[in-house]
């Protein structure tokens, strides 16, 4: 699958053609140097793959993975009929769509504004602070949510009460959580994500801005006709790769905000959190493997499709 482009690109210096065996023997030290990594991925990434077979069995601990009775596609049938698979797929995809759309808009806007900042020190400090949320553990995000939102002592309810209002029971309102989750996701990733667009703006040919200024273009025209079109390739590529990962959820964020609060599941349960719960609190390996396999296959197909589109648009940007 590795592209021919890479092959030809890296074609070695013109040496005499020797047999593969002797070339491998020559490179034995390089092979040995790769060995720890190869063993690592063999053990921790490829090792568990055959276990996906559990999705087609009625797994029980005593009989083990390959001894448990085979049930064919029954598990998937159950997941589809119970509506669970649809709910999880819908939530996972909708959250990702919101993250992608709002995230990119905010990142582009922020990058354009950062580019307007002329005070060097101001720019440096504000950028450093903006990246900070990306740096901390997601557990701390759960702590922040508790600080802001809990019913008895939360900062927002404290403010509301000071203003004479009634406190809100955030942790039992189902409809409000998509907003809260999206806000936290944006809080954590917008600053760091804007780097890419900021760097792309920095890469725009300066003479274009000069020419525009000479022609008397306004700031809005500069953004509309120079900056935004220049960001378009970056945007499309990032978008396509984000679409490739649209079946994968940010487990840590959801789990630390929602946890086991079943009342909120209808709007907040995604594939990752559901699988985690099935394993940790129900010991249900059959269904969790089935959901996981469905996610992997669906995700794989999506990545392939998006990569194919990217390749057709510009082979340089394709992953493989």
């Amino acid at each position: 699958m590795a592209t021919q482009a890479i092959m030809t690109d890296l074609e070695g210096p013109p040496t005499r053609r020797r047999s593969l065996g002797s070339r491998l023997y020559q490179a034995r030290m390089l092979l040995i140097m790769c060995l720890p990594a190869i063993i690592f991925f063999l053990v921790f990434s490829y090792g568990p793959l055959p276990g996906s077979y559990v999705a087609f069995t009625n797994y029980n601990y005593r009989d083990g993975i390959f001894g448990s009775p085979f049930v064919g596609l029954k598990n998937f049938e159950f997941l589809i009929k119970s509506g669970q698979l649809w709910l999880l797929t819908r939530n996972t995809i909708l959250y990702n769509v919101a993250f992608i759309v709002l995230g990119n808009i905010l990142q582009i806007a922020l990058a354009i504004m950062l580019n307007e900042i002329r005070l060097k020190y101001f720019k440096k400090v504000s950028q450093a602070i903006m990246f900070l949320p990306y740096f901390i553990s997601v557990v701390l995000i759960g702590v922040i949510a508790f600080n802001l939102l809990n019913y008895d002592t939360g900062a927002i309810n404290a403010l509301l009460q000071q203003a004479g209002g009634d406190p809100i029971k955030f942790y039992s309102i189902v409809g409000i959580w998509p907003v809260i989750i999206i806000l936290f996701q944006l809080w954590q990733s917008t600053g760091y994500g804007s780097i890419v667009y900021f760097a792309a703006i920095m890469g725009i040919d300066g003479s274009m801005f000069e020419a525009a200024a000479v022609d008397g273009a306004s700031a809005w025209q500069r953004i509309r006709y120079i900056i935004l079109p220049s960001l378009k390739p970056t945007f499309i590529i990032l978008l396509l790769f984000a679409l490739g990962g649209i079946m994968r959820g940010n487990f840590g964020l959801f789990w630390n905000l929602i946890g086991n609060n079943a009342a909120l599941f209808p709007t907040t349960d995604i594939i990752e959190t559901s699988v985690y719960r099935m394993i940790m609190s129900q010991n249900n390996f059959t269904m969790s493997t089935a959901v996981g396999l469905y996610q992997s296959l669906f995700g794989f197909a999506l990545v392939m499709l998006c990569n194919w589109i990217v390749r057709r648009m510009n082979p340089d940007y394709a992953l493989f």
């Binding site: 590795a2 070339r23 790769c34 276990g51 996906s52 390996f285 996981g292 992997s296 995700g299």
Partner: peptide, 27 residues
């Protein structure tokens, strides 16, 4: 000058494209 480097690269890279889910990994 390292033969098979592209194969090994792909062997590593493939794990990001397709992976066993959490349950098989846990087991």
């Amino acid at each position: 000058d390292f033969p098979y480097r592209n194969h090994i690269s792909f062997f590593i890279y493939f794990t990001t494209l397709f992976s066993a889910g959490l349950a098989p990994t846990y087991l």
